[in-house]
Design a protein around this nucleic acid. Structure first.
Lengths: 335, 335
DNA sequence: CTGAAAGCGCTAACAT
DNA sequence: ATGTTAGCGCTTTCAG
């Protein structure tokens, strides 16, 4: 059997409370006893049982992370930020891939609750009413990362997409483009879909440029393949476009690939702009001009915010919007 | 206070063991009582405490994952495989980013031990003697993913790199290339460095082609930037190379980028071959011809193997080698 | 400064 | 089929 605190106590000739003290409040124990106990711990190879401790203290130093898909670069970088913050404050992360599956999501809520995580980070998905209800019933502190909710008072960390998308479009316009298309996320996606499209439309409108949703906007699910198909569709809709704004880097690459397949060069013939600034964006040819989201920081700050919520019971700022940035590289040029 | 099993028992007018039974062995409880209890659980919003349960059963259904960096596509895909397998068997994953930092690694071993994870997956790093000693002391079941050990009897799942690299090189040769360079991982990396280089050298030797380590091989740490710099170095060493094998897709992209910067086209002037077959490889132009590692399957099988180790106490096959595959795309052509 | 004792919430014999 | 009881390994009063 693995040694327990009892074994250590017996071998050290002290009570278990003393052993507990050298582990938790060593300053309350005489030096000689403390050293003795430490030595026994060493020779026995004793390691405290965090379950027993957690059972009493009601604190496990574990956080649950709900994320659509860790193998997606965007989420992987956000997640990495969470990991770094968690490591700095001695927390562990229990990860759950949701694949945007509601049932899987709800079942994870319960599992995490049972495992007594101290809190949860909910990533990149809208907070539906049933999620909120369950969360409330479960009474688990939650912070939203790369998503937010106006309906509910949930702390969140994300980029403000509408202005970011506006800026991107304005940049394209400033470069001299007048016929600009957009490959958007799904219009029913209130997080990364709608706002980015709205920013685009607002910029076009403000500059008196054509911005028919029917002729200038097509939709995809942020993936490379979606970008490829969307570009094909967009091109059939409107072939005098000189620039295309995409709602993700992956879709931008897909769009470039389609254009390449029909002999159109980027950026010589058509400019393409990405969104996210994942590693993808600077690893390809041409390197992507894109909207940078501070992915790592979003994850990092989300965990910090959760930590504050756990320790102080409240956060300093309910909804944090981290600044975006335009990263100018090689996929956009003047027409 | 959150309701406990006691509260449920009281409200249902039964003993706590009966409540425990409806949760764990419902068939042993009369239907009427069971329904009554279930209803109370529902109205009270009771959720069992997994810590208390784990304390008794000595099984937490949590696995620890040690991985260098989840934001790296290679690991992210392996990790995703682990998540899928874990989900299917009702396990949770606690993740620890090691950044190849020995101390961080060793401290994570201990933390995971204290949290009573049932087992651990150790990813993509050599098993150094001090790791092994600690692992042995801690008595935690371990499976290696994307790495292995000949020195120790540790179950592992990976691809056999030497033959894979041989095959890649042989393909290049079959395509007509005679002057081939390699951008290798560090030669001191026994997992993804040395074997891939050895496979390359063996293929060159077997075909009586020039294979001087000094003139044909340069080294990098698998990243884009490394590939870029390595390609520059390689080109200065030997400018009549018509093909380059890289030890990672990222390095291949870096190499292509360097070649592009000095006006050399891929694959028209020089062929470049990648390794890993991450998403990167089919998202760029030209799409990468590469050695496919079944990344997802490596993670998936590693978790399954760990599960078998936990349930049966042994594994059917100590070291599993998953098949690699050549994926022919656009970055290699005949010279 | 130290020890004894009372749980944390649950499962698992052991009775009945 | 159900209840009683004894812990799992630890922290935390409470005495001394």
């Amino acid at each position: 059997m693995k040694p327990t605190i009892k074994d250590v106590a017996k071998r050290s000739g002290v009570s278990i409370s003393t052993v507990s003290r050298v582990l938790n409040t060593p300053e309350l124990v005489t030096e000689t006893k403390r050293e003795k106990v430490l030595k026994v711990i060493e020779t026995l190879g004793y390691h405290p049982n965090a379950l027993a401790r957690g059972l009493i203290q009601k604190r496990t130093h574990s956080l649950g992370v709900l994320i659509p898909d860790v193998s997606n670069l965007v989420f992987a970088e956000v997640f990495r930020g969470m990991e770094d913050a968690a490591h700095e404050t001695g927390q562990n992360l229990v990860i759950c891939n949701t694949d945007l599956n509601k049932e899987r999501m709800m079942s994870y809520f319960k599992i995490l609750k049972e495992k007594q995580v101290d809190g949860m980070i909910f990533t990149s998905e809208p907070v539906y009413p049933d999620y909120y209800e369950l969360l409330k019933e479960l009474q688990i502190p939650v912070v939203l990362a790369a998503t937010h909710s106006h309906d509910y008072e949930l702390p969140s960390v994300k980029v403000n997409d509408e202005p970011a998308s506006y800026d991107a479009t304005a940049y394209l316009i400033k470069m001299g483009h007048r016929h600009i298309g957009m490959i958007s996320g799904p219009s029913h996606d209130p997080i990364a879909g709608l706002p980015r499209m709205q920013g685009f439309l607002r910029a076009m409108r403000m500059h008196d440029l054509p911005h028919s949703v029917e002729r200038n906007v097509v939709y995809g699910h942020y993936r490379y393949e979606d970008g490829y198909e969307a570009m094909e569709e967009l091109y059939q809709l409107n072939d005098k476009l000189s620039a295309v704004l995409c709602a993700s880097d992956e879709m931008a690459l897909g769009a470039i690939s389609y254009l390449d397949s029909i002999g159109i060069n980027v950026p010589e013939d058509v400019s393409v702009m990405g969104y996210d600034n994942t590693r993808l964006a600077h690893v390809c040819i041409p390197k992507l001009t894109t909207v940078s989201q501070p992915l790592h920081a979003i994850g990092y700050e989300a965990v910090n915010k959760l930590e504050m919520l756990l320790s102080k019971g409240e956060v300093d700022e309910l909804r944090t919007y981290l600044p975006h940035q335009l990263v100018i590289r090689d996929s956009v040029k003047a027409p």
